[in-house]
Every structure is written in C-alpha cells, then in structure tokens.
C-alpha cells in the first residue's frame, strides 16, 4: 500500500490547512474555554446551544428508537440468565408492595377526612410533561441527557425531571422541541434535599460518580443519619417541589453518599415536573382546595 495518496491535493485546499490557521484556532478555542468559565450563561452561548439542540433533536429522535430496541435486546440477554432469581425477587417485592398499597389506601381516606375538617391548603398543582430520552452525553465528565420536550410544551429551565423511580436531574437548556437535563451525578449539579427522619437539610452535590454526596448547610447538632433513610428534594429556593424521591443514604455522617432511585441506564420515558412556587400575594384558590379534598375520596370509592 502506498502512503494513501497523501501527496495528492484533493482536499478542501492546501492553504486551508496551514499551521498558522491551526494555531489560531487552538488559541480561539482556549479563549472560548476561558470565557465560558466566566460567562457560561452568556446569551450568545445559550443561543448556540439551543439552536444545536433544535437542529440535532430530529436526528437524535429518529435514531434513538432503534438504539433503544438494541439496548433492550442486549439487556435481555443478561436477563435470561437471571430470570428465575429476578422472578422470585419480584414476587417478594410485589407481596410487600401490596401491603403498602392497602396501607396507602387506608391512609388516603384518613387524610381526606382530616382535610375536610381542617382548613387545608392544597400544595400547588403540578402539570407534568411526558417525554422520551433521545440523547445522552456519553462523556466521562459531562453527565446530561436530551429529552424531546421543549419550550413548545412549556418546559422551562430549572424544572425537575423524574423517571418511574425518582429524580433524574434538572432542565438546564431548552430548545423549541428538545431540552437538556443535567443529571444529579454531573459535577455541576446542586439540588437542595433533606433526609427523612433525620431532620437534615443539605445540598446534593454531583461528582461524576454514580453516587452524589450531601453537603450539609448548617450543623448545630451532631448529625445522626442512618444508612437506608430516604432522601427527598427539600424544595428550598422554590425551584423544585418538596418531596420528590431522590434516593437512600449510604455510608456514615462523615461522607453522606446517596444511592439514587433513578436508573440512568434503564430509564427511557421521563416526566418533567412543571412546578411553580406559589407567590405570597397570590389569592388562595378555593376551587383547587375543594377539588383536592374531593377527588381522593372519589377515587377510593371507585377502587373500593
């Protein structure tokens, strides 16, 4: 084989590839890198990201279907070997969940009874937006996903994205029909959370590992956190609603790791929680309260 015709001049032109251009472009990209450090939210960069999202999302959407199929098939191959154990585990879990279901139904009637005798203010209604994951940053340090819902479906930056099991991340960039979700494991991710039962509020900090850590905001007392306690969003700062399940505590108080509920390798359908923090001067909506007080009862009756 010859030198693959490297002596021929059939490319985009000899002059285009001069050293000078290369060095200038290196300097330009380093300058970009430094400037994006200080102005990551600059409107020019934001615009560029949004247009790239809009341009590529149709392509990603078309390609992600077959890829999900192949992912599934390859996933199933592993499942075949473990089908018996999985079945057994699922049967046990199902039995346990049925007990929980009965308890939950009972509690729902009790709570709705209390709601009727108290002057109860329902938490603000959320309007979830369903979407598919069409893209994912296969990058060692950037942990994000692209979903096929954007401004047209009234998705906004900051909103929470959940899968069937728990919180996945937050919306950071939006295009017209697609948006980017910053995952909880990304090094830039910060989400206010609290540990249930331990009365501890903190910030969930991503660090590109599978398990993010909780950094405690203020510690007047000794922290008593037990492994296995649930971690939920605290709703501090009012961007996310309170009480979205995030994961369970792993490890001791010196380094509070969180084992996330969300499964990044399996989730395909997600839900954007379209939440707006109630303003203080907003008048209380009486019909919402009535509706919230009535619906649970109706549903229990229908199911019972």
């Amino acid at each position: 084989m010859d030198y693959l015709g490297q002596d021929r001049r059939e490319g985009l032109g000899r002059k285009a590839n001069s050293r000078v251009v290369l060095v200038i472009l290196i300097l330009a990209s380093v300058f970009l890198l430094l400037s994006s450090l200080y102005s990551a939210q600059a409107s020019v960069f934001k615009k560029a990201r949004e247009s790239v999202l809009d341009v590529t999302s149709p392509v990603l959407e078309v390609l992600s279907g077959p890829i999900a199929y192949v992912n599934g098939v390859i996933g199933y191959i592993g499942d075949y070997f473990a089908v018996l154990e999985q079945n057994d585990a699922l049967r046990h879990e199902n039995a346990e969940l049925r007990q929980w279901m009965n308890e939950a139904l009972e509690l729902r009637t009790v709570v709705s009874g209390f709601e009727q005798i108290q002057s109860y203010q329902a938490p603000p209604q959320v309007r979830p937006v369903d979407a598919y994951i069409i893209g994912e940053a296969n990058d060692a340090f950037a942990r994000s996903m692209i979903i096929n819902a954007g401004r047209r479906k009234s998705v906004e930056p900051g909103q929470a994205v959940v899968d069937a099991e728990g919180l996945l991340g937050r919306i950071v960039h939006i295009g017209a029909n697609a948006s980017r979700v910053l995952l909880l494991t990304d090094v830039q991710s910060r989400v206010p959370v609290y540990v249930e039962g331990a009365d501890i509020e903190g910030i969930l900090v991503g660090r590109t590992r599978a398990r993010p850590t909780i950094s405690i905001i203020e510690t007047s007392d000794e922290i008593e956190v037990l492994p296995g306690q649930r971690v939920l969003t605290s709703g501090a700062a009012g961007v996310l609603p309170r009480g979205l399940p995030v994961g369970v505590v792993e490890g001791d108080a010196s380094e509070l790791e969180v084992d996330l509920y969300a499964n990044y390798t399996r989730s395909r359908m997600v839900r954007v929680i379209n939440f707006r923090f109630p303003a203080i001067d907003e008048p209380a909506e009486n019909d919402v309260v009535d509706a919230a007080a009535e619906t649970p009862q109706d549903e229990t009756q229908a199911e019972g």
Binding site: L37, V52, T56, R180
Partner: peptide, 24 residues
C-alpha cells in the same frame, strides 16, 4: 488536506454544544 483545522474546530465545537460541557 481532507480534514483542515476549521473542520476539526467545528467538530469539537459541535461536541461541546451537544454535550453541554464548557465550550471550546
């Protein structure tokens, strides 16, 4: 000649924009 540096720059920039990492 088939891959001049502006092309490389464009490929890298596209990756930065699509991955959501720092630009450049």
């Amino acid at each position: 000649d088939f891959l001049p540096s502006p092309s490389v720059f464009a490929i890298g920039l596209l990756q930065d924009l699509l991955m959501g990492g720092p630009l450049g």
